[in-house]
Nucleic acid binder design. Structure first.
Lengths: 233, 233
DNA sequence: TCAGTTTTGTTAGAAGATATCACAATTTTT
DNA sequence: AAAAATTGTGATATCTTCTAACAAAACTGA
């Protein structure tokens, strides 16, 4: 019998950690981040208040943990949406990713707004979150580059201030220069446009307007696909 | 001496209310909604804790009040931005309104995210907020309709699902049918696209990317102005 | 096997939050 | 001047996060 990587203690510890996370996520789903109560979690798990501080040093640390894990989960959903439509072409994949983004947000409204809240000093350094969103950006870049017909860097290189900024970002992120400025711009616009619709939808704006935000999302994605699909010349 | 509309008591009461609001807004600016403490406000005003409940029945009521007032303030900023560029044409006015939206959010990040937070049951009925955002929508509709060259309802009427939904909204809101479906759609897209950029900027996304979100906003507004300005059929 | 160390739990308590209650002081009204 | 409405007070209940001191349990190595 080969020695296990995790000791018995680590296993039970991880189980407790997961149980805490599960309770916390239920509280977030019910009433948002501010509904999290370390005390209540501990008691509902059968242990007394301070015991939970053996697992999370502070409330903020638990929140940061939830945010990081939520980010990864959302990113995984997007990847799965893309892969499940891989035989329908990149344009349909992009549409599926967009729908997955919106549906994840609608299914987990409080968790979604949790990691897009105004960044406070406490959990300003969520490297895992940044890495996850960058992974999703890579997904968008890949799909969009496969939609654009001729990805000739010379003919599609822009000269505007925005394109310069996008080029700076590309170099910063070590994105290969096979991605044209158009693709970079469209990937970013896919995110921002979708995000705007979804956040306003969560705020209840479209409810008041009696408008189906899904139609708006579809229209935006269609617009982006059309721009990507047309010859950039 | 004619009888004043406000009694002496109402005047002092309003003064106290404003002082409470001022302290609360400072707390929000510093650390977001959750940083509001009725107790701390009361004590910093020289009165003891429970006294503040003579002015606001609960913490949520104070928050709702701040949200409603913030909405009105933002809407006023947008209106002022439009009027201060009235002699430069509707396209420049629209750009100014967009910049004002972003700048207000950047100047008041926590207040901005406060009234675009996930709608909870407690302050779900913010009629003032809805009215304010509708006023801003009217502003966008007016500017965009003046950018579109020929506002012929017959030639610009759409047939898609989205246009049907927009038409439903137009009727619901009693918006005059001189606004074409194109204008309705562009007004909504102006809001959603701008909102997406601004909220992601507040979350620190572009900071990590080292991208100036102002360039993105300008590009989006330019795109919308170009679509509005081109002949629709 | 058994002592020593680490980990994990406990209770007690500080400091602060929202919110209610009973009561006092003040101000307006009659 | 008396009555009523308003605005303040302190006491209190109940919640929160989080620290401190201490006890029990579980692993570790000789």
């Amino acid at each position: 019998m080969e020695e296990p990587v995790l000791t018995r203690r680590e296993i039970t510890r991880n189980r407790t950690l997961d149980e805490i996370r599960q309770h916390a996520e239920e509280q977030v789903k019910a009433g948002g981040v501010e509904a999290i109560s370390l005390n209540a979690i501990a008691k509902s798990m059968g242990m007394s208040g301070p015991a939970i501080y053996r697992y999370f040093a502070s409330r903020d640390e638990l929140v940061a943990d939830l945010i990081a894990r939520g980010y990864l989960q959302l990113a995984r959903s997007l990847g799965e949406a893309s892969e499940s439509h891989v035989d329908e072409g990149p344009d349909r994949q992009l549409a599926a990713v967009a729908r997955a983004y919106r549906e994840w947000a609608l299914a987990n409204p409080h968790r979604f707004s949790m990691f897009y809240a105004v960044r406070s000093e406490s959990h300003a350094d969520l490297e895992a979150a940044i890495a996850a969103s960058q992974g999703s950006m890579d997904l968008l870049l890949d799909l969009l580059s496969r939609i654009t017909p001729g990805t000739d860097p010379d003919t599609t290189s822009g000269t505007g201030e925005l394109d310069d900024a996008l080029e700076h970002w590309r170099v910063l992120r070590d994105v290969p220069d096979t991605y044209s400025p158009l693709v970079l711009r469209l990937a970013l616009l896919t995110w921002t446009r979708l995000h705007g619709i979804v956040t306003l939808e969560l705020a209840g704006v479209f409810e008041d307007m009696e408008i189906d935000a899904g139609l708006l999302c579809d229209a935006e994605i269609q617009t982006i696909v059309e721009i990507a699909g047309s010859r950039p010349a």
